[in-house]
Amino acid sequence: MNAPTSFATDVRASLAAIHAGFEATGYLCSDAIATAIFLATNLQKPILVEGPPGVGKTELACATAAWLGKPLIRLQCYEGLDESKALYEWKYGKQLLYTQVLKDKLGDLMAGANGLADSISRLHEFDDTFFSTEFLEPRPLLKALWEPGGAVLLIDEIDKSDQEFEAFLLEMLQDYQISIPELGTVTATVPPVVFLTSNNTRELGDALKRRCLHLHIPYPDANLERRIIASRVPALSDGIRHQLVGFVHGLRALDLKKTPAISETIDWARALLLLHADELDVDLVRTTLNLLLKFQDDIVQVDNDLYRLISAARKA
């Protein structure tokens, strides 16, 4: 039974290393996130990240790239995205030039050929470079596979893309390879770390989900959020940081159209720092509320409740 214990300490050590490594890049991760990163790097599986907007899904990929010291390659998805924009495109202009050059050279090549059969066999000896990597313009997916030291590939907002594109990604996610009809199969030398993010505007296919680890990032607890604010806006004093995180958590408990996420909390913290505030009061909150809430209905609703929320935040 000794072997498993040392094995367990190994796992724990690498998790601690992930925590520390991410903290150095300025991203504070929860245990679930650290576990996901650990699994993804060990099992070489892509991670599908879901969660409300603004909790740091995209940021996670950036932090991973910084931590691993690999380039981040990003593919933003949208409706109508196809393989010529995601995978590769031929450099048509260069290809046209090449045919022109070839035409000029053809005379030299064929000099002294006897009859049609001979010229065709000569033509066969000639290298066909028309469809070769020379004329290939790599797009994000191909770039990620070609990157010699491996890369971090971020496929952002996969739920915005079409279902066909989702199906097209499957080969890439399963084996880290891609088929180009004219060239054959391109396989990654070092498999990239792949992140897919989704805001759940539509249900993703089972086939895609099956191939990924599924990480759901919820809003952080108060403790973690305070640490995040401390690392992102270090100049802010302790007292107001407590109050502002307490206030935001009070808002999240309400029934709002759009609850404020971490990115909004950080924006608000910066604004408060700029205004040299050292305590939350009603006027201050009322004038800066539009940084946190993005709907007029929400602002009106919170305005009615402001005194209670602020006093609760002060006690927290």
Binding site: P4, L39, K45, C212
Partner: peptide, 29 residues
């Protein structure tokens, strides 16, 4: 996949096991 995950994290840490398995087995909230 879950078996592979077990191989990677082991049985010793219950909380870790739970998060790890939940990431590989449960794919919606």
């Amino acid at each position: 996949d879950a078996a592979a995950v077990l191989g990677a994290v082991g049985y010793d840490d219950r909380a870790l096991l739970k998060t790890a398995l939940s990431q590989v087995l449960a794919k919606t909230v």
